[in-house]
Amino acid sequence: MGPKSRITLVLVLLGFALCIFIERSGLLSAYILQISMYVGINIILTLSLNLVNGYMGEFSVGHAGFMAIGAYVSSIITVRVFHNQMGPLVFPLAVIVAGIVAAATSFVVAFPSFRTRGDYLAIVTLAFNMIVKSVLENIDALGGPRGFMGMSRLTNLANVYAWCLITIYVVRNFVYSNFGRAVLSIREDEVASNLVSVNTRQMKIMVFLIASFFAGVAGGLFAHVMQFINPRSFAIQKSTDILVMVYLGGIGSIFGSVLGATVYTVLLELLRPLGVWRWVVGPIMLVVLMICRPTGIMGLKELSGLIPREEQVLKEKEGADVVTASD
């Protein structure tokens, strides 16, 4: 283990300690605690969508559909199957199962993506989102349009934090590998990608699986903060929110997603005193951002700390004759 990974490990553990301390001590108000958890959940959603929209260059507008599946599946497990018993033990399992079920449904989107790209695939994802919502509205056993309740508040800062780290870790390791490069090449030129031996179909399935798994996880966490979910919480507006966070932070950047989710969530809370006008000011800011800086805050750049050591350009090591992008 190198010195850098040792420092990372220490920081991660300190983070955990901090989470538990904050929650136990009651240092922060319940409101701020809640917002912090939303930030974490949004980071998971944003980062997983970034994999599809940012790295692979597709335009999915149905991420909330996967989130809905995760939210309902996890709630069924904790409430209906285990009747709210052994909560803290069952919960991680419930969240993982939620992710797996969400991932399994992603084939509905992945298969059409073999033949369809761009706007039409976007519409497929949109249809998926709408269908999920409509199905949930029509299952009376799950409360139909009234929603599903009875979950205990099993989500806490520590497990949101843990899932955030897992998401970042997985996405980073995926992106900086053979698979990640292949996904980027699909964004650049799918036909050429296939013609340099990349199995684009396999890659698409993989990306949709990972992205929808984490969306499902986020749904599970969300359901157990809110303790009440209904199909409307996962409508197209929710998907739009996630999209905005992705593009606000910057596509193809892990740190961008973290930043985008944080800034957006906090900003919306800060604008709360504006009442109805919050949703007038928000979209204007979004439009202005898109016109002035269409690549988002990070603009395709990555925080260097998140790039694996072996992928960083070391001028000294490769010799002085290396041309770098900044030249």
């Binding site: 053979n178 490069r181 292949a182 980027l184 090449s185 650049e188 030129d189 036909v191 050429a192 990608s193 340099v196 031996s197 990349v198 199995n199 992008a325």
Partner: peptide
């Protein structure tokens, strides 16, 4: 038809995908 935004190294590494 290069992958224009990827580095030269990554372009060549992609050929090793399989």
């Amino acid at each position: 038809r290069l992958f224009r935004d990827l580095t030269v190294l990554d372009n060549v590494r992609l050929g090793h995908f399989a």
